[in-house]
Simulated assay, not measured.
Amino acid sequence: MLKIEKLAGIDIGSNAVRLLITNVITEKDSNKPSFRKSALVRVPIRLGVDAFIKGKISEENKNRLLKAMDAFKLLMEVHGVKKYYACATSAMREASNGVEVANEIFKKTTIKINIIEGKEEAAIIFSTDISTILEKDKPYLYVDVGGGSTEFTLFSNGEIINSKSFKIGTVRILNYSKNEAKQIWNEIEIWIKENTKNLKNLALIGSGGNINKIFKLSGKAMGKPLSLIYMKAHYHFLKQMTYEQRISELGLNPDRADVILPATKIYLSAMKWSGATKIFVPKIGLADGIVKSLYYNKL
C-alpha cells in the first residue's frame, strides 16, 4: 500500500519566484520515501532590481508578488497540498520594506513568507540528497548562485569545513559599478584560494537555475560533470552572443538571457581559483530543500 503526501516549497528569489509541488511516496514496509515533482511554476519577478538599486520593493513588484502568492495558494489547494513553506532570500532581506511586504501578503493571502539568511538558505539546500553525490574521501566546493548572493560551502571527508556567503549574484552583478565588482571578486578569490590551497582533486558542485540551464544545453547525461574546458568555451560562446541571440537561438527566457553570463563567470571563476577541473550539477535548489525539510520536520 502506498502513502502519498503532497508538499510544496515556495522560493522567493532575487530573479524569480518559484512554486514546487512534490508527491512524497512511501511504500508499505519502507522507510525510504520517493520525492517526485508534480508541478513547478516559475514567475520572473525581479525583486533584486528593486532591492539592490532602490533599496526597497516597488509598489508594482509588490503587487505582482501579491498576485503570485494568491495564485500559488490556489494552485496548492487544487493539488491538495497538505503542508508548504515559503522562503525569501537576499532581495527581500535587504529591501527596507521587505518585512512590511511580507506582512501585507500574509494578511491578504495567508501565505506566510519567511525571510531567511544566507546560511539558513544553504542549510535548507543541504537537506536534499546532496550527500549521495559526495565521495567521502574527496573534497568539494559547493557553489549556489542566486540573484543577490552566492553561497560557497567547502566539504572534505564528507563534512562541512567552511562556508561563506558573498553579496554577489546575477542580478546584483548587472547593476554593480566596476569598482564594486572588482572589490567583491577580489574577496571571493582570496577566500577560495585560502580555503582550498591544501585540497587535492577538488571538484565543484553547482546549484541554481543558471547552472541547470547550462547543464541542459550541454546535452550531458545526468550525473556526469561539466569540465573546466567546457565551462570556458561556453562562457566565451555566450559572451559573443547578443541578448537577443540568446533568446532566439538558445531558447532562453528573457529573464534568463542576461543573467546566465554573470552566473557562468561565477562558476568558472570558482573553478579556476579552487583548481577544480569539473563541476557536478545535481539540479537541486532551495524549493527542493524546503520540501525535504518539511517532510523530515526540520522546518
Rank of each mutant, 00 (worst) to 15 (best):
L2P: 15
I4T: 12
A16Q: 04
V17E: 05
I21S: 08
K28W: 13
P33H: 10
V41E: 15
G48D: 09
I53K: 15
I57L: 10
I57C: 11
E59P: 12
K62Y: 08
N63D: 14
R64C: 10
D70Q: 13
A71N: 15
L74Y: 14
L74I: 14
H79M: 12
H79L: 14
G80F: 08
K82F: 03
E94Q: 13
V99Q: 14
V101S: 03
A102N: 01
A102T: 08
I105F: 05
K108T: 15
K112V: 12
N114H: 11
E120K: 13
E121H: 01
A122W: 09
F126N: 15
D129R: 13
I130F: 06
S131V: 15
T132A: 13
K138A: 04
K138E: 09
D144S: 09
V145P: 03
G146N: 06
G148F: 04
G148W: 05
T150C: 00
F155S: 11
S163H: 01
L174G: 08
L174Y: 08
N175M: 05
Y176H: 06
S177P: 08
Q183V: 13
I184M: 01
E187C: 00
E187F: 08
T196K: 07
T196M: 00
L204P: 05
I205V: 11
G206I: 03
K213E: 02
K216P: 03
L217D: 01
K224D: 14
P225H: 06
S227K: 00
S227A: 10
L228C: 12
L228N: 07
M231S: 01
H234C: 13
L238K: 00
K239C: 09
Y243K: 08
E244N: 15
L250P: 00
G251K: 00
D255R: 00
A257Q: 02
D258N: 01
L261S: 02
P262E: 11
A263I: 01
A270D: 07
S274G: 07
G275W: 10
G285M: 06
L286W: 10
L286N: 07
G289F: 08
I290E: 10
S293G: 12
